[in-house]
Structure formats: structure tokens, C-alpha cells
Nucleic acid binder design. Structure first.
Length: 968
RNA sequence: GCAGGGGUGGCCCAGCUUGGUCAAAGGCGCCAGGUUGAGGUCCUGGUCUCGUAGGAGUUCGUGAGUUCAAAUCUCACCCCCUGCACCA
């Protein structure tokens, strides 16, 4: 459909005010929204998925006669807009290209160098996209999270969270650029120039005391192995420095000293060449005893503290380094102590068992298993290390000192506690790979002592959140289970940050800005208020804490400057739309946004206002699997993904909408495929034609019409239950695939457009509306009063239910299938179709016998021929066919086992076949059809086929074209 | 490792909760026939193997089990994806 036609309908919906849901007391409502988008750039076709689902649901509910609220806003908070503005400023290639494609005049670009302006600008572009594909959002709700009224709301939200005990201050390790301030380290690298995939490594430092009182600080991931230390390692030529902390002086590498100062304070002192220390002894903590300091190139001064505690029995690298030493150095160290054992082979997986074969210390076995050739065989050594660490951590049990029998994972915590009690045990965090800020500075991990957190670990708060999850409807349903697991490990989250990003200043301490996830957990409630602000009935100044307390929680006197009646009205409005029916969002929200959204509702509102549902949709992915990458968008036709603009031009809104619904189940990711959109477009053309053709005023054959209407009854019921279960894909399949095939069958069976198809057509038009609203209006014009989008959704009861008609069609289906099965081999050999087919309909006694047999099988018995014959003696009709009964039982009994237990429904087969003769003739190419009772057909059945007849499965005999027509 | 998801016919994707009507929906691709100026659209049929009468055999990651009956239930194993934390 051309864009102009689409716009015509979009304007008609707008004029009719369809998108503005009104509170109508007593009338049902549906309130769902899409987790609002961030502002990192223009929307592309993949984003549509997240809007098509909610729009279809809202349209469905609107047609059910419910009042709907579908708000829309944009999430300007955080860094995306800042980054985007920076890209504009840098005139970054991709960004500039998009701006020209979107037709933004060059003299406006400089305006977009301001983050807030950029965010609003992008927001407007999103609104245009939504309108252009027919998504009906309530325009009055539109907001950005940097609007003043929204900020007032967020201030209240944090005061309320504070009052409810949801906030706490504590220490936190943050990634910061020493120059630019806090940065996010994540693979999207919004803030970074490299290192986004870095992981944070948490070392524990273990102190080793020299006889002069100075302390060598080693860093380890496995503090429990302190019991197996044989020596310390320093790098050849390394220069350590003194780190002064408290009353102690520690020796560490220069990089480590800098990190320790960031994370634990203190100051860096004078350098100390490591060579001075080599050969001296240090005291081992906890275990006691002295071990020597040795040199090895295995030490990397950039990692940890630049001093390594050597545990050769359990660390493959240490074992390899040790093996390089001259015998004279090595011998005095003695045999490396083994300090833990892993559970017996039987409980290990194959890959774990691989590590444990052979003899020697665990480290030696791992080296052998991985085929490590020496200390410099880095890849194999890393593999051996990681696998052995994992194995021992998961399966190991300590065998030393008073930790005997303690699982390693537990022993580690205990050792840390003991070391901490003795002092000089620090947590040292660093990145696994270097991380560089956009401006080229190295990002470090800094301890922030007074970070604000939301107390998501609080047991009571967590418990009330769980209660919401217990009652929550989720799509997919597994997500409900997953959520419980997510809550298990959900910990406190920092909710503020210092530094440059967009957001609301933290009301309890304006030095901080609220973090973007924390300011988007409760906005569903604010949208209701926003409508009053948008229409000028409330001003931002009136949005005080007192006002919100009253509106959202019904407590307190309210805001004195606001008219009491108005305040009551806002409160009533809030209670009308709440609770939220669905929060709909992409799968990226599963672990953060959705949980905190539930948390906040659990704390601020009573359970009866808790959210009712969460709907998770998958992504549209590019050929590379991940989210659509930039280079995949806007490329040439075909393989790559078209821009929003191109897509609309090429297909129009409805094929895109249908594509997003049918391409996969909602939760599935789906790889973008233009061909599938093409075929969706084809299908819609087909649907349009078929729907137009349904007009008519004649009557078809009554049985056939009955079947058509009955089938529609079933289909409409199925469509409604699919929508009710938010199963849009099934709804679409029924609407766009099943209904066309029903109509085709109707025509094939001899029906013609008439009153019956007209009824189907008028309902179908309305069924089309939620997913392809423009098409529905095109086809519905003149057939549905007013706009289709505002018409009532069809009800199953609009169509009569005639079971006999269904039974008959199912019977004919089965007969046709049998005929085809038999005719196929002959047709494949190129033979002409038979001249005539003669049907033999089973005698009633067969039905009786089958019924007896089924009864027996249902009881778990296997009826014998004798039993049936005996029982038949008392039944005149069966008795009359005594000889045939035995044979019939033998033939049919095995078949019955694999058939459905109910058996075929009663039906006048003779009449059904006779009424369908013209159809069968046309369909299968016979010249004539004859239908007879089994008992009256002897002369017509030279091959004796009539015995085969069963209830519901007539026997038949084909008369070849060259055979003389049988007599009678 | 833990948690969640998944492995279905040439491909994509349903079905699995509530075992039977499942040789398994739908789409794509492919084959044949009809329509057509046309290898395009549309319509009809076919598309695991065998079979000159509606039948039989072998299939839903692998192996075992429960059952009269398993793609569907149970157990074990193999493989793949995602997340594991502050990132929107």
C-alpha cells in the first residue's frame, strides 16, 4: 500500500481520537506499554518489533470495547544521548550519513551537539516512525526523561524510596577514567575506545613478611592455596615500590601501587629493586614457616601486585616455572605440598576426568593432560590453569590443617576472613585486559566510599517482589521461573553517579545524578499524571512530593496549591489505569529493567496495584547473529537490512507489521530476511483479493454454508484465545493463513461468493485490524460501519455452530485422502483416471461391533472374537451377519488400537457422499460417482472390495475407462 | 561451574504443559499439472523410503526406560545459544 493511503487511514484514526483512551467508570481497561527506548540513534526496522506487539494488543483490546492506554516516551537519561551528541560533534561518518538520509538540514546539525537537544530530536524521529507504521500511542503522554515534570516525579520517587528504607550508602568499586570521570565498561563501548569486553578480576592480597618488617604483598585468585606455598616469584629486573598504608609498608609493583592507592588509599613511596630481595626468606601467613624469594619470567608486573606466591602442586604455571630452575635452587624447596583432593572419578564429567589422569601433583597432571610444552606455551598453559582452577574450586576438598574436609569454595572465604583478621589482606580489582577511555586514558577501578545503592538485597523487599512474580503473567511463560532465579542473586545496585550524563539530580545529594535504570522503574504510573500536565491542567510547580504521595498512594493531605477535586480526579484516574497489564520489552530487559520495575512497585504500591504481566520479545538480528549491527543497515538491496525509510517505501506498513508478528514466536530472535517480508506482502495482496471476493448475496448449498460458518465460529474463538494469551503469532496464522484456506475449500467444494462468505468477509476484515490495520480499513470500507479499528472484534457466536456440518466435511476429507492415496500410483504411471468410482457404505452392524471393541480396549482388555460373536447373538442385526463378524473383528481390532478412542461421529454417509458427487467428479477427474450400501452392491463389486467398508471409511471400487460400466 | 533456553523433515519455524486423530501445521525452496504471451502471479497436486488399491517401513540430538502406544513423560550423555551484575 502506498504511503499516501496509509497516511490517510492514520489521519482518520487520529481524527477519531482512537489513541486517547478515556476513563469510563465500569468499563474494562487495558494498559500496556513498551519499555521506552533509549536515544542512541535512529530506529531501524528491527526496532519495530517492540512496537508492533503492543500496538496489536492494544488494538485488539480496543475492539473488545475496553478503554486502552498506550503511552510513549523516550529514555534520554544516561550516556546514549551524550555519546550521540558527541558523534555529531565529531561529524562521525555513520552519524552524518544517517542525518543526511533523514533529511536533516546541515545548519541544524550543530544544534544536535547538545545532548538534551539531540535526545529530544531523536525522540521526535521515533514518534514519526511510530505514526508511519500505524502504531497508535497516546500523544498526550509523550515525554522525555529530562523534562522538568518528569524530574519532579523522579525526585518524589527517590524520596519515597528513601522513606521506605530502599536506599543505602556504601563503598563501591567504580570504573573511572582519571580525566573524564565514570565510564561504563561493556561490549557496546559507548564510552570506550577499546577494552569493552574486559572483565573485572578480583584478587586477594596475601602478605609475606620480611625479617626487616617490610611486607611483600602477593595477589592471588586462590587465597586458600597459601597452605601450599613453596616460594615467592618476582620478575627478573623488576622494580618494586613501597606502598605506605596505615602503619605498614608494602612492596608491590608500580602499577599495583597505583591501583591500591585508588582502591584503598595510602601513598606510593620509594622504589626498591626486586633483585635486592631475591634469595631472602619471607614468613608465610596462617601456615607459618619461611620460604625463599625467587625470580621467574612468569611474573607480569602489570598483573596483580607483581609478586606471585608459588603453589607448584596446584598452579600449572608455577610448576612449569619451577621446572626451569636449576636443580640446586629447586631441591631445597622440597616436594610441593598438595593441599586438597578432588572427589572420586565417578562423580566427574569426562572433561574433568581428563585432568586427573596419571601421577604426580594435580598441576603436573594438568600440564600433561593439556600437553603443555613449557612455561612459554601460553595457550596450553592458560587452558590447563583455568580448567584445574575450576575443577578444584568446584570439586575440591581441603586436606590441610584445620580445614581438612572443608570444600574449597568454602575454605576460600574462611582463609580470607583469617587473613583479614591478621591484617594486610586487601581486595584488589583490575581489568582482565587494558581498557581505554574514548579520550585515550587508561580506565581504572576506583573505590567510591559513599556510593548510593538501592537495597535490592533486602530480604523483606525481595520477598514482596517475589510475591508479585508468583502472580505475574509472563510471555514466554518460562520467564516467570527465570525471574525467581534472577531475584535469588539480585544484589544492591548503585543508583547514582557523578560525572557527565543526562538524568535527574539526586534529591538527597545534588552532587550525584540518578542512574538511568533507577529512573525508569515506575514511570508507568507517571504517564497517567503526564496527561494532565500535557493538557495544561497541572503545572510542573504543582508536582510536589505531597501531590504524588496523594495521587499514587492515597496518603497525606495532597498539594495545597492544587484544587482538591482535580487531585481526586488524578487519583481516580491512576486507580482506573493501574495496575499495569503488560510491560513489553526486548530480552535485554530480562535481568535488569524488569526486575527493578517489579521491585519498585513492590515497595511503593500495595499488592493489588502490582504489575500483572511482562511480555518479552526477542530481537531482529543481522546475519551475524547479534543485534543488528550498523553496517548491516542501509546497505544495498537484498542481503543487508534496509533503513526504516527504505522499508516503508518498499513494502508499506502492513507487510512489515505482519512480518514482525509471523517471522517467529515473540520470544525468539529472528534473522532479518527481506524475502520473508516480500512473502508477507504477497500474502496480504492475496488476503485483500480474497476478502474483496467474499461479497455476494446468494445462498450456497445449505450444508456447505453451515460448514463455512461453523468453521468460522471455531476460528474466531481460536483467534480470540490466542490474543488473550498474547500469542500473536498464532492469531496471525489463523487470520492470514487459516481463513484463506477455509474460503478456498468452500469455493472448491462448490460454494460461491454469497451471503455466507459475505458474513465471513465482514468478520475477517475486523480480524485483520490489530495486525494489519491499514489493510483492514481498505477492505472494510463500505462493509463495516465507521472505522474498522473502532469496530467490535468478532465474537465466535456471530456464527452458528453446526457440528453435523463439521463431521460431514471431515468425513469427505478423509474419503478424498483415501481416494488420492489409491489413485496416486496409477496417476504417476501416467494412467487415465478411472471412469467411475463406486462407494460401498458400511452396514450399521459394523458400527455396533466397533463400538463394542472400543469399549473393551478402553477398559484395557483385548476382546476376543468369541466374546463378540457371543454378544452379537443377542443383537439381531449383528447376529444376522455372524460369519462376517469374526472376520471383521480380526481385521479391525489391530487398527483400532492406533486410532483415537472415540471413533467416528455418527453421520449419514450415504447422503454425504451423494451430495458431494459433483465435487469428487470435478476434483479427481471421474466421469461419475455411484454410492451404494454394502449389502445391496454385490453385482457392482467384481473385486469384492465392499467388505472393506468401515463406519466412516467407505470401501470403493474403480471402474477403469476401458471396462464396461457395471450393471444395475 | 551456576542459571535459563535450545537441538524437529533441503532450509526457517510450530507441536512437547494435558502421550494416541503426528510421516508431524505454516512458510521458503523444489517437482508436476492448470491458468498465461511468458520459466512472473494465481490455482491444484506432490515433495523420508518401498509399494501396480486406501498398505508397510524408518524418522523429531544420542542411548536407555515407562506405556498397549512417545517428537511429546523419566533418566543419562553429547552439542549449541544466552546471562552471571550495574550495561541501556
Amino acid at each position: 500500500m502506498e504511503a499516501e493511503r496509509a497516511r490517510h487511514w492514520q489521519e482518520a484514526w487520529a481524527r477519531a481520537g482512537l489513541s486517547t483512551g478515556q476513563r469510563i467508570p465500569g468499563r474494562g481497561k487495558f494498559y500496556a506499554l513498551n519499555a521506552y527506548p533509549g536515544t542512541s540513534g535512529f530506529l531501524h526496522v528491527g526496532h519495530l518489533r517492540g512496537y508492533v506487539y503492543p500496538d496489536a494488543l492494544h488494538r485488539y483490546h480496543r475492539m473488545l470495547g475496553e478503554q486502552v492506554l498506550f503511552p510513549f516516551g523516550i529514555h534520554a537519561s544516561g550516556l546514549p544521548a551524550v555519546t550521540y551528541a558527541q558523534k555529531v560533534k565529531d561529524r562521525e561518518e555513520q552519524t552524518v550519513r544517517q542525518l543526511s538520509e533523514e533529511g536533516v538540514p546541515k545548519d541544524e546539525w550543530s544544534r544536535l551537539e547538545d545532548p538534551e537537544t539531540a535526545a529530544r530530536f531523536l525522540g521526535e524521529s521515533y514518534r514519526r516512525v511510530l505514526r508511519s507504521i500505524g502504531v497508535l500511542v497516546d500523544e498526550a503522554t509523550y515525554l522525555t526523561t529530562v523534562d522538568e515534570d518528569y524530574r519532579a516525579f523522579i525526585r518524589w520517587q527517590f524520596h519515597a524510596l528513601q522513606a521506605a528504607g530502599g536506599l543505602v550508602q556504601g563503598a563501591y568499586f567504580a570504573s573511572v577514567c582519571p580525566v573524564c570521570g565514570p565510564v561504563a565498561v561493556d561490549p557496546s563501548e559507548t564510552d570506550l575506545s577499546s577494552g569493552g569486553t574486559a572483565e573485572v578480576v578480583r584478587f586477594t592480597t596475601v602478605p609475606y613478611r620480611l625479617d626487616d618488617g617490610r611486607i611483600l604483598l602477593t595477589a592471588t585468585l586462590r587465597p586458600e592455596t597459601v597452605y601450599g606455598v613453596t616460594n615467592l616469584w618476582v620478575a627478573p629486573g623488576e622494580v618494586l615500590v613501597v606502598w605506605h598504608h596505615g602503619e605498614h609498608s608494602y612492596l608491590v609493583s608500580r602499577t599495583a601501587a597505583a591501583r591500591l592507592v585508588e582502591q584503598h588509599g595510602g601513598r606510593v613511596g620509594h622504589p626498591v629493586p626486586a633483585s635486592e630481595l631475591v634469595g631472602r626468606n619471607v614468613a608465610v601467613p596462617l601456615r607459618g614457616g619461611l620460604v625463599p624469594i625467587l625470580e621467574s619470567a612468569l611474573v607480569d608486573e602489570k598483573v596483580g601486585t607483581g609478586v606471585v606466591m608459588s603453589v607448584p602442586a596446584h598452579a600449572p604455571a608455577d610448576a612449569a616455572a619451577l621446572a626451569e630452575l636449576p636443580e640446586a635452587t629447586r631441591a631445597p624447596l622440597g616436594a610441593p605440598p598438595v593441599l586438597l583432593e578432588v572427589s572420586p572419578d565417578a562423580t566427574l564429567t569426562a572433561s574433568e576426568r581428563e585432568l586427573t589422569g596419571g601421577t604426580g601433583t594435580p598441576a603436573e597432571r594438568a600440564l600433561r593432560a593439556m600437553g603443555v610444552r613449557g612455561r612459554t606455551d601460553a595457550a596450553a598453559l592458560t587452558e590447563a590453569t583455568e580448567r584445574l582452577y575450576r575443577l578444584e574450586f568446584v570439586r575440591g576438598t581441603m586436606t590441610v590443617a584445620d580445614l581438612r574436609g572443608v570444600p574449597v569454595r568454602e575454605a576460600r572465604d574462611r582463609v580470607v576472613q583469617r587473613l583479614t583478621a591478621e591484617g594486610s589482606c586487601f581486595e584488589l580489582q583490575e581489568f582482565s585486559i587494558p581498557v581505554l577511555c574514548r579520550n585515550g586514558h587508561e580506565v581504572v577501578i576506583r573505590r567510591v566510599p559513599d556510593q548510593w545503592f538501592l537495597r535490592y538485597s533486602d530480604p523483606a523487599w525481595k520477598a514482596s517482589t517475589r510475591q508479585i512474580v508468583d502472580r505475574l503473567r509472563t510471555s514466554p511463560s518460562e520467564y516467570g521461573r527465570e525471574l525467581q532465579g534472577i531475584l535469588d542473586w539480585f544484589q544492591d545496585r548503585p543508583c547514582t553517579r557523578r560525572g557527565r550524563w543526562l538524568g535527574t539530580p539526586f534529591p538527597l545529594d545534588p552532587d550525584w545524578v540518578i542512574e538511568p535504570i533507577a529512573d525508569s522503574t515506575f514511570y508507568m504510573a507517571y504517564f497517567v499524571v503526564r496527561r494532565f500536565v500535557a493538557t495544561g491542567r497541572l503545572t510542573t510547580a504543582q508536582l510536589t512530593d505531597a501531590f504524588f504521595e496523594f495521587v499514587f498512594r492515597g496518603t497525606g493531605p495532597g498539594e495545597p496549591s492544587v484544587d482538591r477535586a482535580l487531585q481526586e480526579e488524578v487519583r481516580t484516574e491512576f486507580l482506573y489505569w493501574y495496575p499495569l497489564d503488560y510491560n513489553i520489552g526486548g530480552k535485554e530487559h530480562k535481568r535488569v529493567h524488569f526486575p527493578v520495575f517489579l521491585y519498585t512497585h513492590a515497595l511503593l504500591l500495595p499488592p493489588e496495584l502490582a504489575p500483572r504481566g511482562i511480555f518479552v520479545n526477542g530481537w531482529i538480528t543481522g546475519a551475524t547473529g547479534g543485534k543488528l549491527s550498523k553496517k548491516e543497515i542501509g546497505g544495498k538491496r537484498g542481503i543487508q537490512v534496509p533503513t526504516m525509510r527504505d522499508a516503508l517505501h518498499r513494502w508499506g506498513p502492513d507487510p512489515l507489521r505482519l512480518y514482525h508478528v509471523v517471522a517467529a514466536s515473540p520470544a525468539q530472535d529472528v534473522e532479518w530476511d527481506s524475502d520473508v517480508v516480500d512473502s508477507a506482502a504477497e500474502r496480504l495482496r492475496d488476503v485483500e483479493r480474497l476478502a474483496q471476493e467474499t461479497r455476494g448475496d446468494g445462498d450456497g448449498p445449505p450444508e456447505l454454508d453451515a460448514w463455512l460458518l461453523t468453521t468460522m465460529h471455531r476460528t474466531v474463538a481460536a483467534v480470540r484465545s490466542a490474543y488473550d494469551a498474547t500469542d500473536l503469532r498464532s492469531a496471525a496464522e489463523l487470520t492470514y493463513v487459516t481463513i484463506p484456506s477455509i474460503l478456498r475449500r468452500y469455493y472448491a467444494r462448490g460454494g460461491a461468493p454469497g451471503r455466507a462468505t459475505d458474513r465471513v468477509g465482514r468478520a475477517w476484515v475486523r480480524l485483520l485490524s490489530p495486525i494489519t490495520p491499514h489493510l483492514a480499513e481498505e477492505v472494510g470500507a463500505g462493509r463495516v460501519e465507521g472505522l474498522v479499528a473502532a469496530a467490535p472484534f468478532p465474537a465466535a457466536d456471530e456464527f452458528p455452530l453446526v457440528e453435523a456440518a463439521e463431521v460431514r466435511e471431515a468425513y469427505l476429507d478423509r474419503v478424498e485422502e483415501d481416494l488420492r492415496a489409491v489413485l496416486r500410483p496409477a496417476a504417476e504411471r501416467g494412467e487415465r483416471p478411472p471412469a467411475e468410482v463406486v462407494f460401498f457404505v458400511a452396514e450399521p452392524w459394523k458400527a455396533e461391533v466397533e463400538r463394542w471393541l472400543r469399549e473393551g480396549l478402553a477398559r484395557g482388555e483385548t476382546p476376543t472374537v468369541r466374546e463378540v460373536v457371543d454378544r452379537g447373538a443377542a443383537h439381531p442385526e449383528v447376529a444376522a451377519h455372524r460369519t462376517e463378524v469374526a472376520k471383521y473383528v480380526q481385521r479391525v481390532l489391530p487398527l483400532l488400537r492406533s486410532e483415537p478412542p472415540e471413533g467416528p461421529k455418527a453421520l449419514d454417509e450415504l447422503a454425504a457422499l451423494r451430495a458431494a458427487d459433483a465435487y469428487l467428479v470435478r476434483r479427481l477427474g471421474f466421469q461419475s460417482v455411484r454410492v451404494l450400501r454394502e449389502s445391496e452392491a454385490e453385482s457392482m463389486d467384481p473385486r469384492n472390495r465392499r467388505e472393506r467398508a468401515r463406519p466412516g471409511r467407505p470401501a470403493f471400487y474403480f471402474v477403469r475407462p476401458d471396462e464396461a460400466p457395471a450393471g444395475g
